Amino acid sequence: MTIVNEGNNPPVNKTIKVDRNAGNIIIGNSPEYEISSAINELLKSLANKPFTFKKNRRRPSSETVVKIQHNNLKAKSHIIKQYLDHSSKVEEAYSEIDSLITFGKATILQNLNDLYFLALDAVEIDYLICDIDIAKVRENSEFILEFIIQRLKNTVFESKNTPAYKEHVELGVNVVVAHAFIECIIMENPADDS
């Protein structure tokens, strides 16, 4: 690519080298920025729910504690705590999404499940021809969860209907991912291994 400057300045050469690519390379604004996202509607709905900060802590259920231990997610326990503080609002928001977007909740949960399998692909954990190796999941659990969170944030920021405040995105994504964890949409369910 050569960029020619006006005036006495010599042309500037900029080279982009792409060794391997599976998709479009877009320089400038992507068309994705013009499309709305179901997850953003959910985050906006969550952000509009009244919330009062309370210092007292709600404890997770024993099943949630077992699942955290089973998946070795102690380093990401803060998102479970955030979810516990907002759990009733998540279900309300999902109900609202289903009234706004046909199969809105199912679409979001399917997307989260797909992100989980993309994360498993990223750490080379097989799931098609054999049972998921829980030892490998446990070894990579922090990366897997961070992968899902980051990909979800990318979707949020690259969509037309992005929430107005960064804090709403950060908290909302964490709460939605934690909900998916508790509902066994992502990560492994200890009950499946018995």
Rank of each mutant, 00 (worst) to 15 (best):
residue 51 F to S: 11
residue 90 V to E: 00
residue 53 F to Q: 13
residue 69 Q to Y: 06
residue 21 N to S: 14
residue 57 R to L: 12
residue 35 I to L: 13
residue 62 S to Y: 02
residue 67 K to Y: 02
residue 63 E to C: 00
residue 56 N to R: 11
residue 27 I to Q: 12
residue 81 K to T: 11
residue 55 K to V: 13
residue 83 Y to F: 10
residue 51 F to D: 06
residue 50 P to Q: 03
residue 68 I to F: 04
residue 81 K to F: 09
residue 72 N to M: 01
residue 66 V to A: 06
residue 88 S to V: 11
residue 20 R to I: 09
residue 20 R to P: 02
residue 25 I to E: 07
residue 34 E to G: 10
residue 57 R to T: 09
residue 67 K to P: 02
residue 50 P to L: 01
residue 41 E to T: 15
residue 54 K to I: 09
residue 21 N to V: 15
residue 14 K to H: 11
residue 63 E to A: 07
residue 22 A to N: 15
residue 92 E to M: 04
residue 60 P to H: 04
residue 71 N to A: 10
residue 88 S to W: 04
residue 59 R to W: 03
residue 61 S to Y: 01
residue 91 E to G: 00
residue 22 A to Y: 13
residue 19 D to Y: 11
residue 58 R to L: 12
residue 58 R to V: 13
residue 38 A to W: 03
residue 36 S to V: 13
residue 43 L to H: 03
residue 71 N to K: 08
residue 89 K to P: 01
residue 89 K to Q: 14
residue 21 N to I: 15
residue 85 D to M: 05
residue 28 G to V: 05
residue 20 R to F: 12
residue 90 V to F: 01
residue 21 N to L: 15
residue 76 K to V: 05
residue 68 I to V: 15
residue 50 P to R: 04
residue 44 K to G: 11
residue 34 E to D: 15
residue 60 P to G: 07
residue 27 I to P: 10
residue 40 N to K: 05
residue 34 E to Y: 14
residue 22 A to V: 12
residue 48 N to L: 10
residue 17 K to G: 04
residue 67 K to A: 12
residue 16 I to T: 07
residue 32 E to V: 10
residue 39 I to T: 09
residue 66 V to W: 00
residue 17 K to F: 05
residue 48 N to Y: 05
residue 47 A to F: 05
residue 83 Y to R: 01
residue 66 V to L: 04
residue 60 P to I: 04
residue 35 I to R: 12
residue 77 S to P: 00
residue 79 I to L: 13
residue 56 N to L: 06
